[in-house]
Amino acid sequence: MNLVSPVIVGIIYCLLMSLIKEPHRRRFNAIMVGGAGAAYLSGGGFGPWELPFVALTAYVAYRGLDSWAFIGIGWLLHTAWDMAHHLKGNPILPFHHDASLACAICDPVIALWCFRGGPSLVALVRRRFRPGRTADHAYDHVSAPS
């Protein structure tokens, strides 16, 4: 399995989410992590234990409506669940043996972005490459005196 592709998918996810303005970006991501928590329900690899995991991620997603940190925690919980399913041989996509492993590589990328507060990567790239930018940009965030 290509280990770089899931990282790229995680970065693309963060870039696409960056197109959503705050506070909607955080709320939408809380919904996404809640949905990710239910992704294994139809496969049922861990039988009735799938249900407490869904309940836990639903709670974490609910808390994520107001907290990027909880969304990051939710993605890390999903990473652990991905690894458990991968090791058990019950992947998220039954037709792709390494799907859960790929998901377990992608999710921490998203979690790191969430722990940073889900910043707009599009805005960061625009600021980085704006015309007239000087090499010394340590004080870009400081406003000029009026």
Results as ranks from 00 to 15, higher is better:
His96Asp: 10
Ile31Cys: 05
Gly47His: 03
Met17Gly: 05
Ala30Arg: 00
Val142Asp: 08
Met1Phe: 13
Arg25Ser: 05
Asn29Val: 02
Val109Ser: 01
Met83Trp: 13
Pro145Lys: 04
Gly45Cys: 09
Asn2Phe: 08
Leu93Asp: 13
Ala30Asn: 02
Ile31Trp: 13
Arg128Gln: 12
Tyr40Ala: 04
Met1Asp: 11
Ile110Pro: 04
Thr79Asp: 04
Ala55Met: 14
Leu16Phe: 07
Ala38Asn: 04
Tyr13Ala: 11
Val142Leu: 12
Phe70His: 14
Arg116Glu: 00
His86Gln: 14
Arg25Ala: 07
Leu76Thr: 10
Asp136Tyr: 01
Lys88Ile: 04
Ala102Pro: 03
Ser42His: 14
Ile12Trp: 09
Val9Met: 15
Cys106Val: 02
Thr79Leu: 02
Gly43Met: 02
Ile73Cys: 10
Ile73Gln: 11
Pro52Val: 00
Asn2Trp: 05
Ala58Pro: 05
Gly72Ala: 06
Ile12Met: 09
Glu22Cys: 11
Val125Leu: 08
Leu16Gly: 15
Asp98Glu: 15
Gly37Lys: 11
Ile20Glu: 06
Thr79Ile: 10
Tyr59Glu: 14
Ala111Val: 00
Val54Asp: 11
Leu56Arg: 09
Trp81Glu: 04
Arg133Met: 02
Tyr13Arg: 09
Ala36Gln: 12
Ile73Met: 15
Ser146Ile: 06
Tyr13Lys: 09
Leu101Gly: 07
Ala58Gly: 15
His78Trp: 05
His96Tyr: 11
Cys14His: 00
Phe53Gln: 05
Arg63Tyr: 00
Ser5Asn: 09
Asp66Phe: 12
Phe95Gly: 15
Arg130Met: 04
His86Val: 01
Asp136Ile: 01
Asp66Ala: 14
Val54Lys: 07
Leu65Tyr: 10
Trp75Ala: 09
Gly117Glu: 05
His137Tyr: 12
Pro145Tyr: 02
Phe95Pro: 14
Arg26Glu: 01
Phe95His: 15
His137Ile: 00
Leu3Ile: 11
Ser67Arg: 08
Ile31Leu: 14
Cys114His: 05
Val54Gln: 06
Leu41Tyr: 06
Phe46Ala: 07
Arg126Lys: 14
Val122Cys: 01
Leu121Ser: 03
Ile71Pro: 00
Ser67Tyr: 12
Tyr62Phe: 14
Ile8Thr: 08
Gly45Arg: 02
Ala111Asn: 02
Lys21Asn: 11
Ile71His: 01
Met32Ala: 15
Val7Cys: 03
Phe28Leu: 15
